[in-house]
């Protein structure tokens, strides 16, 4: 009897409607998705092919030099980079590493290109902030696998849907930290800039963004890390790279192979994290 109260409406067809909507979008926007898939896909492929064509020793040395200078001429990070990257090479995972790096790099760049302006918009408009905040919550808490389904529908399989899924998963921190960073700029500095007759753009570019830079960079660091964490998941829809090695090891219960590929991801994560963090410190 009591349960009947809850049954006053039949099951709502949310799942069906979502499916219909996705199909509708796929069909109607194929004029948009198809060229993206084609051009962006081939761009990504040539990027990773280029990286693969460069002799690994050059890349390893380049990373080591960057690590050395960016960490304030200390040898720790540089040494770690050389040893770590050599290990990946030694395990014959170099090509996978380059694919993964391409995916993370492009997903991160796109996240920043989209995330920073959205964050600025949020910091300037209370309405925008009220609308965007729950969307960001949704994007971050929805299990990442769920994004794979529309990603495949829109872009097929391969790197492009991988980037798409990473983008959704990894953009929120950049948006949030940009918003936070700008809102944290001291009221007196904002007033000073206004009192001298700055336009909105002058205030933003000459005062707010430079002041918020450290916070924004912390957000970007988070975005890069999240993008990296998506590589295994994205491999389920055919994105190449270290993630695919982990996935296939999982499917075949090969503990050893899975472990080695996993370590490769960890090494890449540490190098990227320390380099982006040090970029931030240096500029302070």
């Amino acid at each position: 009897m009591l349960n009947n109260v809850l049954d006053f409406v039949p099951k709502l067809p949310i799942a069906e409607k979502t499916k219909d909507a996705t199909e509708w979008i796929t069909e109607k926007f194929s004029f948009l998705f198809d060229p993206i898939k084609e051009h962006f896909g081939s761009f990504m492929e040539s990027t990773s092919e280029f990286l693969i064509s460069v002799p690994p020793v050059i890349i390893i040395l380049l990373v080591a030099v960057i690590a050395f200078f960016i960490s304030g001429k200390k040898f720790g990070l540089a040494t770690f980079s050389i040893v770590g990257l050599w290990f990946i090479y030694n395990q014959e995972l170099w090509e996978h590493l380059m694919s993964t790096f391409t995916l993370v790099l492009l997903a991160s760049i796109l996240s920043v290109i989209i995330g920073v302006p959205v964050g600025i918009l949020m910091s300037k408009s209370r309405i925008a902030s009220a609308i965007i905040t729950p969307i960001l919550d949704f994007m971050q808490t929805m299990p990442a696998f769920v994004y794979l389904i529309p990603a495949v529908a829109f872009f097929g399989i391969g790197m492009v849907p991988g980037v798409f899924a990473s983008l959704i998963f990894a953009t929120p921190p950049t948006v949030r930290f940009t918003n936070l960073g700008i809102r944290q700029v001291s009221q007196e500095l904002v007033e000073a800039s206004e009192a001298f007759g700055s336009t909105g753009a002058q205030k933003l570019f000459k005062v707010e963004l430079p002041m918020a830079k450290t916070t924004i960079m912390a957000g970007i660091n988070q975005t890069v890390m999240l993008a990296l964490s998506m590589v295994v998941i994205a491999s389920m829809i055919g994105a190449p790279g270290l993630g695919r090695e982990v996935l296939s090891a999982l499917q075949r219960a090969q503990v050893g192979t899975g472990f080695v590929a996993g370590v490769g991801i960890v090494i890449l994560a540490i190098i990227i994290d320390r380099i982006t963090q040090n970029m931030n410190k240096q500029k302070q």
């Binding site: 001291s186 007196e188 500095l189 007033e191 000073a192 206004e194 009192a195 001298f196 007759g197 000459k206 005062v207 430079p210 002041m211």
Partner: peptide, 16 residues
């Protein structure tokens, strides 16, 4: 007017 006629000095300096 702010640019040409009024300039402000702040309590906590508000230097960039």
């Amino acid at each position: 007017v702010r640019r040409e006629k009024l300039s402000m000095v702040f309590q906590k300096f508000a230097l960039f």
